[in-house]
Computed example of a mutant assay.
Amino acid sequence: MQLQTKICGLSDPQTVDAAVAGGAAWLGFVFYPKSPRDLTTEQAASLIQRTPPHIGKAAVMVDPDDMLIARVLAAGVTALQLHGRESPARLAELRRHQVELWKAVPVRTRQDLDVADNYRGVADRIVYDARTPAGTLPGGMGLRFDWTLLQGFSHPLPWALSGGLDAANVAEAARSTGARLVDVSSGVESAPGVKNVDKITAFLQAAARL
């Protein structure tokens, strides 16, 4: 199966178009005021409108309330990607919206991976991301964890690999971990929150060769 890709933190038409043209399976839109990639739901809706129906659209959020979730769903997202302290019970509540639910699991040690099992039956996908320092953003900082931690791990759910990916290392990442979906953000930027068309294209081309 071909490696699937998600380009996260998109915020303008040019980079959305580059992700679509390059064959991304998923686009990610961030709704978190502390992030340099934060969008309004109106901005996201405009970008989603130019995206083909077969491409997934994920809303990346941190402990969102019901009002924000209602707004992002109205904008047209097809998955909620949760990067906060959302409990399995919270995800169980959100299943009523009938969209995919992705739960990020911050990883630094082998024991961190075990958290994924708590979301069996309520999440559709786990996103393994690098654990960031306390007081910083929960993701999108270009950090990677030790990919060998995933070798031999029995995954309780479908999963994606995130954290520190770019065009130069995506092949190593996929070979090392067995990932079939990779999620990139800062690795295709020229500055925090500023996506780069050429870097998006290069990343997608590198992934397509695998």
Rank of each mutant, 00 (worst) to 15 (best):
G193A: 12
M1V: 06
T41H: 12
G139W: 03
V62C: 04
A18R: 08
D129G: 13
A92P: 00
L113T: 04
A58L: 02
D146V: 09
R90Q: 15
P13C: 09
A160I: 01
H54D: 12
D63C: 12
A25R: 09
Q2L: 14
M1N: 06
T15F: 06
Q205S: 07
F153R: 11
V99L: 09
E189Y: 01
D124E: 05
P13V: 13
L101I: 07
I7D: 00
A171L: 04
A134F: 05
Q111L: 14
V107Y: 06
S185R: 01
A74W: 01
E86C: 12
Y32M: 08
K57R: 15
S176F: 00
A19Q: 09
R95Q: 15
F29R: 07
Q151F: 01
W159C: 01
H155D: 00
D146E: 08
Q151V: 09
F29Q: 10
A160K: 02
D146Q: 12
A173N: 13
F145A: 09
T177C: 12
R120K: 13
I69Y: 04
A70Q: 14
G142H: 07
N118I: 00
A202E: 08
A134K: 07
R85Y: 05
A174E: 04
F153W: 13
H97Y: 15
P88N: 11
E100M: 12
T201L: 00
A21R: 15
Q81S: 06
P158Q: 10
V30T: 14
H155V: 01
G193I: 10
P88K: 06
G193V: 10
L137H: 02
E42V: 13
L3S: 13
V127R: 07
N196S: 15
